[in-house]
Write a protein that binds this DNA or RNA. Structure first.
Lengths: 167, 167
DNA sequence: AACGTATTCTACGACATCGTACCATTCGAT
DNA sequence: ATCGAATGGTACGATGTCGTAGAATACGTT
């Protein structure tokens, strides 16, 4: 609880919402991870298998973008999936820089079996919220996820700091 | 996007809310991480420094519980902070199994300088939502974070009986 | 065709993260 | 006092995660 922080009301409200968002995401992830681990996968591996399963083979860079991970990270994850014979790489003949990631039959079988169970676990986790609350949450989170950058020029508190160097 | 998944409406709604929650948390974290990295810290290190700064020295296990991290992980993070002379360990004389984590003067100076800027960045990120939306988000996330386990057997979730386990 | 730039991936090092196993200490039961 | 269970940390290995640097490839301009 960061509520020990003494700032203005707007800052406290934002920090409170931020903390609760992070805790919700982390604790739900942690609970779901237990079920995922039982089938020998990590959360990220499940995400990659699921994306390729539902969207078809795609390049590592596309996969990285979809999973909000760095290309270097995706390479590691695909390495591990490849080592376990759940996925494999294939050079894109159209653009030989690209590695197309596809599932092996074993990988396909695994994700086809595991995903419905995972979806059930997600549904159970979310069931503390009513359907309309789930939709509210989705809507609020969508705005947040899209990212801000609203106020480089607004009349808020832009006068005194020198810390804006990122883009 | 898991919208390719063909399941019943309830499952699709839950998956959609879940995905948006995760993406919001991850993308906000990633954007904030850039600012944090500029001062030479990681997100987790900032969290530990902030907790000790605002709540006072505490044992690693308490810190781990507050940060929703494993004890092993906290040990690593404290190792890194200790190596950089931002924090140090002290044996609890009351219970010699415990390691009390406290800040060095350098650590205290750093977090005192950095935290307000971080709070400002959080406020800016959250500013895509109105104050009342931020409160809605906090409220929804609080329910989710507390964890479910309501309905392995019942069909109608009553919604308000609650297990108070963590603080 | 040659060059410069952009894209894609890989290599590597640092840190985060977990689970498991193990050690030290505490504490309750005997 | 002793023993056994519980608790707090540490050690270790596996994986995830990023940033940076570098190699290979593509592509637009000349």
């Amino acid at each position: 609880m960061p509520t020990r922080f003494r700032g203005d009301a707007g800052t406290r409200r934002a920090l409170d919402a931020y903390i609760k968002l992070m805790r919700a995401a982390e604790s739900v992830t942690a609970r779901l991870a237990r079920g995922i681990r039982e089938v020998g996968l990590t959360t990220t591996q499940l995400g990659v298998l699921e994306a390729v399963f539902h969207l078809g083979p795609m390049a590592q860079c596309e996969l990285a973008a979809k999973q909000l991970k760095s290309p270097a990270n995706l390479a590691t994850v695909v390495d591990n999936l490849e080592r376990r014979r759940l996925a494999r790489r294939r050079r894109d003949p159209e653009d030989r820089r690209r590695s197309i990631v596809e599932l092996t039959p074993a990988g396909e079988r695994l994700i086809a079996e595991v995903f419905p169970r995972h979806a059930g676990a997600v549904t159970r986790e979310l069931s503390v919220l009513s359907p309309s609350e789930q939709e509210q949450l989705a809507s609020l989170c969508r705005k947040l996820g899209l990212g801000a950058c609203p106020s480089f020029t607004d009349g808020g508190r832009s006068g005194s700091q020198n810390n804006r160097k990122d883009g």
